[in-house]
Design a protein around this nucleic acid. Sequence first.
DNA 1: CGCGGGTTTGAGTCCCTTCAATCGTCGTGG
DNA 2: CCACGACGATTGAAGGGACTCAAACCCGCG
Lengths: 236, 236
Amino acid sequence: MLRVPTRCSICGLREACLTCDLMLANTGRNEEPIVNDLHVAQGGYLYRTGDQFTALYTVRSGFYKTVQTLEAGREQVTGFHMAGDLLGADGIGSEVHGCDAIALEDSHVCAIPYSHVMKHGRYKRELQARLQRAMSGEIVRKHGVMLLLGTRRTEERLAAFLLNLSERFAARGYSPTEFILRMTRREIASYLGMNDATVSRHFSKFRSEGLIDVQNKHVHILDVAGLRRCLSSKTD
Amino acid sequence: MLRVPTRCSICGLREACLTCDLMLANTGRNEEPIVNDLHVAQGGYLYRTGDQFTALYTVRSGFYKTVQTLEAGREQVTGFHMAGDLLGADGIGSEVHGCDAIALEDSHVCAIPYSHVMKHGRYKRELQARLQRAMSGEIVRKHGVMLLLGTRRTEERLAAFLLNLSERFAARGYSPTEFILRMTRREIASYLGMNDATVSRHFSKFRSEGLIDVQNKHVHILDVAGLRRCLSSKTD
DNA sequence: CGCGGGTTTGAGTCCCTTCAATCGTCGTGG
DNA sequence: CCACGACGATTGAAGGGACTCAAACCCGCG
């Protein structure tokens, strides 16, 4: 039986976790250990724009945002990431990270040195396949966001955002209808390409329509079908 | 000396081309040949949403758009692809293509069966690295588009679009200041998340400002710096 | 209890869309 | 060779959605 680090063996993350594969691949070889279980406090940077790309990361616990900064301090949130999500794949191509990854709450991540991925990728076909699937999924997800930004009005985007969060929480065993927003209105707004005032307004509107119950960070979805309807309202 | 198919040895594509790597990897082995040099006529589909994912593609010549269709026939262009660009990576994760790839002009593509990528990836580390770099680049590019859609006004987006095209043409040895748009105004508008009327308007505006000379599909950029300035005008 | 950051809400403005009409271009067929 | 039709591009007018600016509010925290 293989000696797997405790953390991986008790880890409840979905199959997308590369770390576990690598730990297995690494077992029995006399090589530098994989740095896992990195701790980043709320507000801390996992990596910054321009940092040398050395490792991929899997979120173990906590909540992250990735942020791209424009010339003049204008910045945009390009993604929110929770347990099981891959971080840092944008650096593979240029060998430099293209955005900041910031913890929205105290968090644990697994760091996977890219050199290990490349080394063991040769032997472990399944590992390689997983990384590619993960990156492919990243592309598909970004397609979805582009779709959102390109074709939906602000209200529809916000509804889609809530439903997306809901699904992701559900997939991780949390309540799909009641959760805490770890990000501010401004961060949501940035991600969805709108103004933070507009986010507030639509939240209020949703509440007045009985779709959700929201106060500050606490969200309770009362009518999932209603939110869905709101999403496809313009479609008819 | 390795026997490389003529097409690859005379191919002027940038290093991103996976096909050539695979052809080399394949040399000397007795395996099903890689299907390259696929021809798709203008308006034809390279693949459709829902198609089983079997291969990656590299554009050899011609111009492609990728389109995602929403429920009610509303569709959005998620990308434009020219010589050297990778197509189809969105299907790796789900094993099904998530968008349509449509040729905007008669085109040639190299098809690379994914099974070959996986098979030879084990032996050829460099090949694996290239695929990952290509996918990573795809992610970075999508980040850029999201940035555009999320933070820029329509005029800025169009300017950025023209500059982006210009750079890509330049990288391929074509004139960066004079080129033919293979897509319609509506397709540009869809890609940039705006109305086709708005595209026309801004083209006219750019022309009246002496930034570009445009008639129908023919674009001549007269003032690159001016377009750049337009991009960062709001930044001050 | 007062402070600060985030949130909500209002009023006014403008950018962009929508709808529609006209124009230009290209391919086809008379 | 020209007329015609179809489709895309341009342009105008009008309306609305989202932003900007700003004030009031709320909540956590020292």
